[in-house]
Each structure stands twice: as C-alpha cells, then as structure tokens.
C-alpha cells in the first residue's frame, strides 16, 4: 500500500462530524446518547476524546468506523459520508481481544485471514516488520496468554495497523493496564504513530493520558454527550516523561479536570 504520509501537515478536514447526534431508540421522545457534535479531524492528527462514563465516547468512535450510522447529522471521511464499515480504519479495543487459539503472528495476520480467507508471504513479511517495529519479534510465535497485558495490547495495535489504515480508532485501549505499563505503552504508541503516521481518534478516561498523547482534546459532557470544549495541546513533540513535569502539562490537565468535575460550565 502507498504511504500517504505528507510532511507538510495537511490541515484540511479529513474526518468530519457535522451536527452528529444519536439515539438507539427511534421513538421521538427517546433520549439522545450524543448530540450536536461538530468536529473536524485533520489528516494524521491525534485527537483524544475525554468525558465521563456513558457520555457516548465509544458511540462516536463506532460512527467513524461505520459500525453505527448516526440518527442525526453526518459523519464523513474525506468528504464521503460514512454509510458502512470502512476498509481504511483500524480499531484497537479496550481489551486486546487476541484470539487465544492463534499465535501472536497469526493474530496480527487475522484481519487478512478473516477478510479474504488467506494471506500471502508478503503479508507475513509485513506482519513481521510491524512486530519488529513494536519490539515483539521474539514473541511472534508465542500464544497470547504467554504475554503480559501490555504486550498483548501492543499486539492489538499492530493488528490494527496490518491493513495500513489511514484512520486508527482506539477505544480506551490502555484502561485495562496498570499505571506503569500504561505510561510506557503511551510512549510506545507515540513512537509507532511517528513511524506510521495515522489519523488517530483516541478515547480515554485518563486526562493526563489525553494531554500527553494528543494534538487536540475533545471534552464531552455527561449524557447526552455534547462538546464542552476542544482544547489545543500546545506541548512540543516528541513528548517524554519530561513533558509530564512541564507547567503547561499541569495547566492543561487542570482545565480539563475543571470541565469534568463541573460539567455544566460552558466553554
């Protein structure tokens, strides 16, 4: 596949949400899960979404994936409305969800095997390269249960990258991990992202994780989820553990924390 990475930073809207709202129950008086979401994500931008539990963050992600068609408004990718699951999307879930009966390598190759029923030697080569990039080469022939939680989730990320998607959707991918692993894998993700630039929509519960990783943060209100603020994270890249100690990092987390604990204050 052709690498669409551009260095000049294409700032035109790549993923676009216009007045997006959704309810699962079609009756007119049924409550909305999310409403009035306007968001443009640029190509190869890293956008995090934070908000209280049940505010519809995951619903948003599923709309971009095409797994869910919004009942109100429109989601489009590159000016095309999303009406079905897209090929250029890779998803990483909360739990790694590796298939316990396949080796790590076969798990990485699973999307191809599942979509087309087979894979070629060159696909295998690509899987090996991705595993190497993620530092997993020595575990390629192990079974998932022989790996730690953090490593399993790295395999999950590698699996999502196999089809070289333009968009990487991550649904609280590190929430099942312990704090130390979580910080480390965050840096690993940034490293992988730098080597394979993608447009990332990153759902998280962790404010500091959002600040540490992303370019912009969408802060959502409690249900029905709507946009409280869209915050530019002006921290320099590459980010490291030093970033966490910077005063700006503390400021940004404080701002967001303010929204989460006083959710009715408008932006």
């Amino acid at each position: 596949m052709e690498d669409k990475n551009t260095t000049d930073g294409n700032k035109s809207a790549y993923v676009s949400m216009k007045k997006v709202g959704h309810k699962f129950d079609p009756r007119p008086d049924a409550p909305m899960v999310v409403q009035d979401i306007d968001l443009d994500i640029h190509r190869h931008e890293f956008v995090a979404v934070v908000g209280p539990s049940g505010c519809g963050k995951s619903t948003l992600l599923r709309m971009v994936a095409g797994l869910l068609i919004p009942s109100h408004g429109e989601v489009s990718v590159f000016n095309r409305p999303v009406t079905e699951p897209r090929d250029d999307v890779g998803i990483v879930f909360q739990k790694a969800n590796l298939l316990p009966w396949l080796t790590v390598r076969k798990n990485v190759l699973f999307p191809l095997k599942h979509k087309y029923g087979r894979y070629s030697p060159s696909d295998e080569k690509r899987a090996n390269e991705l595993l190497e990039m993620a530092g997993l080469t020595q575990f390629a022939d192990k079974m998932p249960d022989e790996l730690s939680g953090g490593m399993q989730q790295r395999v999950g990320i590698v699996r999502a990258l196999l089809l070289n998607p333009d968009i990487l959707l991550m649904d609280e991918p590190f929430s099942a991990l312990d704090a130390l692993t979580r910080e480390q894998i965050g840096f690993d993700l940034l490293d992988i992202w730098k080597k394979n630039p993608k447009t990332v929509l990153f759902i998280t519960h962790s404010i500091s994780e959002a600040v540490l990783l992303s370019d912009r943060i969408l802060v959502m209100s409690k249900r029905p989820g709507s946009v409280l603020d869209l915050i530019e994270v002006d921290l320099p890249r590459p980010r490291s553990s030093q970033t966490i100690n910077s005063p700006r990092f503390a400021e940004l987390t404080d701002i967001i924390r303010g929204y989460i604990y006083e959710p009715n204050v408008p932006a």
């Binding site: 599923r62 797994l67 699951p85 999307v89 969800n97 298939l99 699973f110 599942h114």
Partner: peptide
C-alpha cells in the same frame, strides 16, 4: 468487540462463525 472487528472488516458471515 470481536464481532465488531469482523464487521469492520466486512468479512463474510460464515467466516465470523467459523473463525470467531
């Protein structure tokens, strides 16, 4: 999530049954 993964890949349903 595995079913969603399968759907996001638009894999045929028999493979969802057999492989997942």
């Amino acid at each position: 999530e595995m079913i969603e993964l399968s759907q996001s890949l638009r894999a045929p349903r028999y493979r969802e049954t057999w492989q997942i």
